[in-house]
Each structure stands twice: as structure tokens, then as C-alpha cells.
């Protein structure tokens, strides 16, 4: 059981790290497209790792099934939303940031 707890702790810590770094990226990156990258990171890696970590906490199969459903749902919807967002932004002519441009 101790092994499970350590594994869960490691996963949660990694997830928290990803989540925070994604948040900082969303704030600090210079333009919309680079920020998409940061947001995508928290949504997939951060969320996935945290949910996996919670899964290993061992709280009965009902909870485990729900955690898996949430994971599946997020894995489907959040890349889709990021994709359509970037697509729509590109079509609307949101300019891409190049080295030396001012931050937007």
C-alpha cells in the first residue's frame, strides 16, 4: 500500500507542477498561440496526472470509474476546444508573434 501512496504523491506533485507552470505560461507568454500551448499543457498533462494521482488514493471503484470518465471527457473536449480556438483565431487573422515584437 505504501508503494501506491508514494506513486500517488509523485503523480500529484508532478500534476501540480504542470498546472502551475501552465498558469505562469498563460500569463507570461507573448501571444495567443504560445498561450494555447501553455493552456493545453495544464489541461492535458496537469489534469491527467492529478486525476491519476487521485485514482491511486484508492477510494472505491465508484469513485475510480467517475475519475476515469472525467479523464476521458477532458481528454476529448479540451484538445478540441483548444484546436477550434486556435483555428478560429488563425482565420480571424490574429497575428503570430515573432522575436522582437511587442507582447500582446
Amino acid at each position: 500500500m505504501i508503494v501506491l501512496e508514494i506513486a500517488s504523491g509523485v503523480l500529484l506533485a508532478a500534476g501540480a507542477l504542470f498546472v502551475i507552470s501552465g498558469g505562469v505560461g498563460l500569463l507570461r507568454f507573448p501571444d495567443f498561440y504560445t498561450r494555447t500551448h501553455a493552456a493545453g499543457l495544464t489541461d492535458s498533462a496537469g489534469a491527467g496526472l492529478i486525476l491519476l494521482g487521485l485514482l491511486l488514493q484508492g477510494a472505491g471503484w465508484e469513485t475510480a470509474v467517475r475519475l476515469l470518465i472525467i479523464m476521458l471527457f477532458l481528454a476529448l473536449t479540451s484538445p478540441t476546444s483548444t484546436h477550434i480556438l486556435a483555428h478560429a483565431a488563425r482565420r480571424d487573422g490574429v497575428p503570430v508573434w515573432r522575436e522582437g515584437d511587442p507582447r500582446r
Binding site: V19, G22, G23, L26, F32, R35, T36, A39, T42, D43, G46, A47, I50, L51, L54, L67, I70, L74, S78, S81, T82, L85, A88, A89, D92, V94, R104
Partner: peptide, 22 residues
């Protein structure tokens, strides 16, 4: 612009999902 806001709100939404779980 609008896109940055939606992106932020989308990410905020994922964080609320995790918030409920945690």
C-alpha cells in the same frame, strides 16, 4: 482580445473540474 479571454476561461474551467475532484 476575445480569444485570450476564452482560452483563459477554458483553462479556468478545467481547473474547476480538478478543484471539485481534489
Amino acid at each position: 482580445d476575445l480569444y485570450n479571454r476564452i482560452l483563459a476561461i477554458n483553462m479556468f474551467g478545467t481547473k474547476t473540474v480538478l478543484f471539485v475532484a481534489v
